[in-house]
Amino acid sequence: MDEKYQYLTIMGLKFNTANCISTLLTALLVFLFVFFTSRKLAMKPGKGQNLLEYLIDFTNGIVKGIMPGDEGKPFYFYIFVLFTFILFSNTLGLFLEVKINGVTFTKSPTADPMVTMPLAMVTLLMSHYYSVEKWGFKGYLSNYIRPVGFLLPINLIEEFTNFLTLSLRLYGNIFAGEVLIGLLLNVASSFGILTAVVAAPMTMIWQGFSVFIGAIQAYVFAILSCVYFSRKLERE
């Protein structure tokens, strides 16, 4: 795809405006969602509160499914925000693609590896942090030669593959979805009204499927984060 982005360089760091704007937009949408669903909290939940509580129960269920018991408690909140954020950002690019003079300004922020990698990084850093907190630094290091010493290189490589698979899986799925939507839009605008009529239902179908993929990927990201947390907290 010949997508063009505008870049800003501030203090030697390069910023992709499309990513920044969409990240900010997603964060804003997530915040507005939880803000307006959590007004007027009551013992008998209203519509918004019900929705939010259902979502919280769902993400808590993800954590509980992998870490039943108290060791999962610190992750409930992180997994909730992570899941909601990824879900919103996966869905954002499906209906919001702003292009000005051929330069894209909004898209799914998760359709860029530079966005998915820090998310995976946060998860893995958290897993290392909680591992050190639980076992002590020596215990944390000794986990790399468990169950047997010669697995040390494999355990070390695993840390990097975990990071790469976690971030690139999300990126690949969402990026592919965006590419196909871009292609369908190209088809729609190629030969006037005829191709637009043909492309419209296909776009709709693909958008629906992409919502499904986006939700699945958010779920997978959340569940894998939990798996990495629990692996660091358990000893075979």
């Binding site: 870049y7 992709n16 990513n19 990240t23 590896p113 530079m114």
Partner: peptide, 19 residues
């Protein structure tokens, strides 16, 4: 303002801060 087509580390930092 630069228009280029390579990876931008600033996005990662921006995302972490936003997150």
């Amino acid at each position: 303002l630069v228009i280029a087509a390579n990876a931008s580390l600033g996005d990662s930092i921006f995302l972490i801060v936003t997150f």
